[in-house]
Design a protein around this nucleic acid. Structure first.
Length: 418
RNA sequence: GUGAGUGUAGCUCAAGGGCAGAGCGCCGGACUGUGGCUCCGGAGGUUGCGGGUUCGAGACCCGUCACUCACCCCA
């Protein structure tokens, strides 16, 4: 038997309704905040991610699905959407076309990692990006969108954390301060931390090794080393969040893994999720557009993991309870009438089902019950003779004969009551 | 890439060297025009895959694949 490949999975009825609900809410929230949907290819030139996501990141160094196509082109299944969206923004000059480009995108991403709870090789993200606005108000507005999304999905036990990682000017100063403060303690940290000290000192804050914590707790905070402009910006973001009444926790240990982040970074964490507890994360990337060959334009955005949102959503999310009508027939003549009746019910907008196999009336009722039918319409010799249909409300168990034309109006009424 | 745990019916799990089982679900019947509750019957298995030990392996050993969780990293 051929199975789905590692880290990929099928989403089946019973779960797919949660996804449909999530996607509907996501689109609705994004569009209310003025974002327009953009769909980009899942496959791009490899160099887009090497330049965009960054050579220093784990994603580029070891997680990309890259190969040479039959034309000799180096291509990659996108590991994240932001570089693609920046490319589309530049390629189609969305700055001119849209004024303030606020866009969102939903789709699959691919990373070659060991799967675990909330982490897959093919996973799905909602991305929101806003280009060209430097004012910190946009940071707060994007965070507000993210917070709104999580609220409307009914997810409990969430926490927003924010930080500022500075800019090209002040970050090197902080990195130097970090290494200076570490001093003689560096050899006492774990092997991962020693590696991080050389490649990206900021990431030492990600360490979870218990023995390292006292040393790390004593390190300086990036927020205390911001340049004048970055500090003013960060203060304004926090003030706006307070104005919006969004609870947040400044976390000097929030350091994001992608090379392009500047100034504001944020994550929303869910307590129910396990080790991979970030529902969404993002921040500013003021140098990325230029890095990818465009004009000097700032940007801010976030990516939300749909698998993680689905995991964190309440049990009963996305289960609508519309009417389900089952047409039961006895005898060949009745089956013909029943076939037309289900067709007409569906045309009238109802969810309607029929038994295809001419089974016993009992079996048909059993199936109706299993399907969660709210109503069963019975067609037998008696009903055929006088042009009626017996309608049974499966929830109350009551039934009555009705003239066949009146059944639509009756069901519409029941639908309104529900 | 590293570590640990787990792979038996559609699902959840028993059987720990000696006949592959239960509950739920599914199909049918009791109830020849009525679901849920109850009772009865039935279908459904290459015990993940390959090798080895043994008179005999679902079980023990080796390998492999998959799943789960964690590390790493991130959504």
């Amino acid at each position: 038997m051929i199975s789905a490949i590692r880290g990929t999975r099928d989403i089946l009825p019973g779960e797919v309704e949660r996804w449909q609900h999530l996607e509907a809410i996501a689109r609705q929230v994004c569009e209310r905040y003025g974002c327009a949907e953009v769909r980009t290819p899942v496959i791009e030139r490899e160099e887009l991610f090497e330049k965009g996501t960054g050579q220093a990141t784990d994603i580029v160094q070891k997680e990309m699905y890259s190969f040479t196509d039959k034309g000799g082109e180096r291509v990659t299944l996108r590991p994240e959407a932001t570089p693609s969206l920046v490319r589309a923004y530049l390629e189609h000059n969305l700055e001119q076309a849209m004024g303030v480009p606020k866009i969102y995108s939903i789709g699959p991403m691919f990373r070659y990692e060991r799967p675990q709870k909330g982490r897959y090789r093919q996973f799905h993200q909602l991305d929101v990006e806003v280009f060209g606005i430097k004012d910190p108000m946009v940071d707060a507005d994007v965070i507000d969108l993210a917070w709104r999304l999580v609220q409307e999905l009914g997810i409990q036990g969430v926490e927003l954390i924010i930080n500022s990682v500075g800019c090209r000017r002040c970050r090197p100063v902080f990195n130097a301060a970090l290494l200076a403060a570490l001093g003689d303690d560096l050899p006492r940290l774990c092997a991962d931390c020693q590696r991080r000290a050389a490649t990206n000192p900021l990431r030492i804050f990600d360490c979870k090794v218990p023995a390292d914590q006292p040393i790390i707790d004593a390190l300086p905070h990036s927020a205390d080393y911001l340049c004048e402009e970055c500090r003013t910006h960060f203060d304004a973001v926090r003030r706006h969040l307070q104005t919006l009444n969004i609870p947040f926790r400044p976390s000097h240990r929030l350091v994001r893994g992608l090379d392009y982040y500047t100034r504001t970074t944020f994550e929303i964490l869910a307590s129910s999720l396990g080790a991979q507890n970030a529902l969404l994360g993002g921040g500013r990337y003021d140098g990325l557009v230029k890095e990818l060959g465009g004009p000097d334009r700032v940007g801010i955005g976030f990516a939300a993991g749909l698998e993680r949102l689905v995991l964190a959503m309440p049990e009963d999310a996305g289960v609508p309870t519309p009417l389900v009508v089952f047409v039961a027939a006895m005898g060949d003549a009745a089956r013909d009438v029943a076939l037309v009746l289900v067709r007409d019910l569906r045309r009238a907008g109802f969810r309607a089902e029929i038994d295809y196999e001419g089974r016993s009336i009992k079996a048909q009722f059993k199936r109706a019950d299993r399907l969660g039918a709210t109503h069963v319409l019975v067609l037998g010799d008696a009903e055929l003779a006088d042009g009626t249909v017996t309608i049974k409300d499966m929830r109350t168990g009551q039934q009555a004969p009705v003239r066949r034309q009146e059944v639509f109006a009756l069901l519409k009424e029941a639908e309104g009551a529900a």
